[in-house]
């Protein structure tokens, strides 16, 4: 008898909680995005502006690009905001997303120890730099987590004519973690690592690390935003999420992105509507 009463109480607590959660979600959407957008502080800058204008709360779950897309695929977010064009297009082609809107780009940079054991500092050619690192067997930290940055890194190895899956040795370390963790590892082990500029500028535990290669066009990193398809997941908050997407690509949203600076440096370059972006 006592047991039954307690179980009943527990059920009430749970049920009450669920109702409360449903109510609290009324004017909010969930966006799955990449660690780089969160860690760089961009969302901290633009989301309050959007909320002020529309009253909509954007809850950002920051994950690697692969996981963020998967979260959208499962219907656990209303929109995805990531940076891996090929994967994004596949996401839309498979019917999980409605349409991909290019929003902005930032760039990747090759980070490495100031001592530069591979001797590649100052160059503008990222593939040449990677070739040298491999030849000299200098330590290289890879995200190894199927994130956008990881995908970009793999594409660069390919562009350098290296089959990294086959050619990797002790010098190539896949850590399977986020950008910050990869930078922490590089800092602790004096390795090279490919990073997005935003995370790097916000990163505090730099130790002996510095920018080694930057400015190569192949290092540009395009972000896109996609509404999760309401036909697959009817609970998706279509209007609220589309309002967020529309704002991101509007002149107002684009200006907000351009205005975000760290130490006087602009991190993200809006390019909504740019052909081929």
């Amino acid at each position: 008898m006592l047991n039954r009463r307690l179980i009943f109480a527990a059920t009430l607590v749970l049920a009450g909680g669920i109702n409360g959660a449903a109510l609290a979600q009324d004017k909010s959407i969930v966006v799955s995005s990449t660690t780089s957008t969160t860690d760089s502080g961009l969302f901290g800058h633009i989301l309050p502006l959007f909320k002020q204008k529309t009253g909509i709360d954007v809850k950002v779950v920051s994950q690697g690009t692969g996981q963020a897309l998967d979260t959208g695929r499962r219907g656990d977010s209303d929109a995805v905001f990531v940076h891996a064009k090929a994967q994004e297009e596949k996401f839309v082609a498979e019917g999980f997303g409605v349409k991909r809107f290019p929003v902005m780009y930032n760039d990747f940079i090759l980070i490495g120890p100031k001592s530069d054991p591979a001797g590649v500092k100052g160059g503008k050619d990222i593939t040449a730099a990677l070739k040298t690192i491999k030849e000299k067997g200098a330590a290289f930290i890879s995200r190894g987590d199927k994130s956008g940055t990881h995908t970009a890194e793999l594409n660069l190895w390919k562009a350098a004519g290296i089959d990294i899956a086959k050619d990797k040795g002790d010098w190539y370390k896949e850590i399977g973690q986020g950008m910050g963790a990869a930078l922490n590892t590089a800092s602790a082990s004096n390795g090279y690592v490919l990073s997005d500029r935003g995370t790097w500028l916000n990163f505090k535990n730099r130790g002996e690390l510095d920018v080694i290669v930057e400015g190569d066009r192949r290092l540009f990193n395009q972000y896109g935003v996609i509404l999760v398809n309401p036909e697959k997941h009817p609970h998706v908050k279509k209007e609220l999420s589309q309002a967020f997407i529309d704002w991101l690509v509007s002149p107002e949203g684009q200006k907000a992105i351009a205005d975000y600076k760290v130490n006087g440096q602009q991190l993200f370059f809006p390019n909504a509507g740019a052909p081929g972006a």
Partner: peptide, 24 residues
């Protein structure tokens, strides 16, 4: 929880986040 700022961010997930930002 997803470590959503201001909604599901707890002490431990905040610590993980600051660690990944390198703010040890």
């Amino acid at each position: 929880g997803g470590n959503i700022d201001g909604f599901t961010r707890m002490m431990t997930t905040a610590i993980a986040l600051e660690t990944s930002k390198g703010d040890l």
